[in-house]
Design a binder for these strands. Structure first.
Lengths: 176, 176
DNA sequence: TTTGCTCGTTCGATATATGGAACGCTTTAT
DNA sequence: ATAAAGCGTTCCATATATCGAACGAGCAAA
């Protein structure tokens, strides 16, 4: 296995542990593993068992993929990057976009077909979005829905923001 | 570690392998592990090393959270296809999946981390989703949000359904 | 200072995950 | 029919992940 992955595992472990103010001994005890084991893992040596990873992940309260998979760094682009995820059929048509915004951008969206609704779900970072004058500040996991046929905007602050944008073209029913 | 998790790992492994038309021997050889090892893992016994899991995940071409975490498990029923769209960082972590369901499938999802919230946005088709006994019938552009740490289900009717599933792992803020 | 506590690391012993060679079974070819 | 090749499983030897104990360092209270 890639040695790099073990390194990242170690660094993730340590940073997550420190972020929670836990000592190595405390975490090891809480997880029910030997601290010698945890020590080696944080050092980047070792090749933990699923059982071990599981116990640690439970204690750190993270889905365990977070321990081993590299943090997705925002692509080095300027401005805004948009990707069409999927597009539904008719009645009503639904478009889903994945979107990544650099810090300090302001985007005033064009108006769409009358009756269209737009939903924004923030995946990571922070984003201000909504109708002009009625925007909301959204963090990860938060969402906002507004009419897409009126001028609306996206604005980022100090950080990158990744989000999903869903556009429903025929106004209908409840939307998120 | 939870024996249940090892079972699910085994079932995931086998279903993913079969879905790709690989024999156990082939996969083991391709991944560079002994087939005795893989055999034991699929049987639900054993406690694989991170190295082993990694090698298998690479060969199956799945982000390896798919092997162990419940949401993206097209296990028992075929006819469900799941793709990880994006994954946010910490505080809170947000996972976004694209999902396609065949007609007449019923999927009872396992529980995630306590406090997790799950949002379903239907892109096309129709889908019944929500907590057991509190499901809602959703059409294109409609969405539903419910706690993900309780048993919940997806059910399709006569048609295919395409949807987005967003999981927010740390309960926090409005998810309406 | 000394004592006592906790920290993270390192060491040897043990438990066990892995690899490799059998095995019996089924399928395909001769 | 027999042979040959592939399948998945089960055994044992070995590599190694884990454990528990001992260690030195840092810190606070006596």
């Amino acid at each position: 296995m890639d040695k790099l992955s073990l390194d990242t595992l170690g660094r993730h472990l340590q940073s997550l542990r420190l972020a929670r103010g836990l000592s190595l001994s405390q975490l090891a005890a809480a997880a029910g593993i030997a601290k010698s084991n945890l020590s080696r893992l944080e050092a980047g040596n070792g090749n933990p068992t699923l059982d071990t990873i599981w116990r640690i992940a439970v204690q750190l309260e993270v889905p365990f993929s977070q321990l081993v998979e590299p943090v997705s760094a925002p692509v080095e682009e300027e401005g805004i990057q948009v990707r069409l995820i999927d597009r539904g059929g008719d009645t009503p048509q639904v478009d889903v976009y994945w979107m990544s915004c650099a810090p300090h951008i302001l985007r005033v969206a064009e108006t769409h077909t009358p009756g269209a609704q737009e939903s924004v779900m923030v995946i990571s970072g922070e984003l201000e979005a909504g109708l002009e004058g009625e925007t909301r500040l959204l963090g990860p996991g938060e969402s906002h829905t507004f009419p897409a046929d009126q001028p609306h905007l996206y604005r980022t602050g100090e950080t990158w923001a990744t989000l999903l944008v869903t556009i429903v073209y025929a106004a209908q029913g409840d939307v998120l």
